[in-house]
Amino acid sequence: MTTEARYTRADFQTDQEVRWCPGCGDYTILASVQNFMADLGVDREKIVFVSGIGCAARFPYYMNTYGLHAIHGRAPAIASGLAVARPELSVWVVSGDGDSMSIGGNHLIHALRRNINLKILVFNNQIYGLTKGQYSPTSEMGKRTKSSPAGSIDFPFNPVSLALGAEATFVARTIDMDRTHTTEILKQAYQHRGSAFVEIYQNCNVFNDKAFAALTGKDERDQNRINLVHGEKVLFGPDRERGVIIDGGTARIVDVADAGIDAIHTHDATAPSAGPAYALSRLSHGPFGPTPVGVFRAVDRPVYEETLQQQIHDAQAKRGPGDLAELIASAGTWTVPDHDERELPAHS
């Protein structure tokens, strides 16, 4: 990151009135992103925010960059075209749990597996906010909402597990209220080459308030928040007295005193196998108890648009820049000579 103070947060604010509900976690995320962008110092005109539909999807209107508020679920597809066409741009997708994992699930997984240079931020509030309170694909079983008065019978997605299963090369989780942590994750996502999937736990104070209390509440957070730090033992608790071991592919929480510090798993986000990251993601199937946050996985894999550029480059080096007239004639031609323009009889 550049150190020169080229931009301030105000440079990334627009003249649009921000229209989220008072107290919404989206405000905090917006502030984090604007501050991050100002610090990053990337040319503002080279940044594009693309969103789908939902509360989170209003985001581009509030960022003074290029932006496209598109169609429900389709942001990764549209952003893919943008990033593949113009690899020099910094393309960000802002989505929610319904947008990315329900109606747009297909586009999300394919953008991730292709490893297109998109930074995909999923504001997960575990509820449909803009349509006023139906359960979402990340809502817990049994959740009572307007569309599930007897309790939701849908088993939810674990977004981190989903992204890992979709061959994502960068997978992280953070929390709206923790701006320092959010900023650090954004920085790592930006620096990653290829698709970066960032789940942001985001509180919807109107339809699903305190959904993340286990991780944000004063009394609970120290008990439940497991910070993943690359190269460090996975320890948590007020006195780091608890830890995670991975045994037979499954992660378990243990008391360090019982298991011994040597048995505790050392987090390696760059491990060639996604197995350990997946095991960590399965420690919780929702933020209701001890839950890891941080970068689960960050590995190198060829970036789609870079490979495409290389193919273009190689083809041009081998065959030249292409001559359309030559191409059209390549399938074989014949020449009709000049002749008297005799009137031909009608025939079919």
Binding site: I78, S80, G81, A83, H107, H110, I312, A315, K318, P321
Partner: peptide
């Protein structure tokens, strides 16, 4: 490819239209 043509085999028809529109925006 030597003409600089970018082809994108999308995951579905919707994504194909979306990617083309994203490229137009670009």
């Amino acid at each position: 490819r030597n003409f600089g043509v970018r082809t994108f085999q999308a995951e579905d028809e919707i994504a194909a239209a979306g990617a083309a529109l994203g490229a137009s925006f670009a």
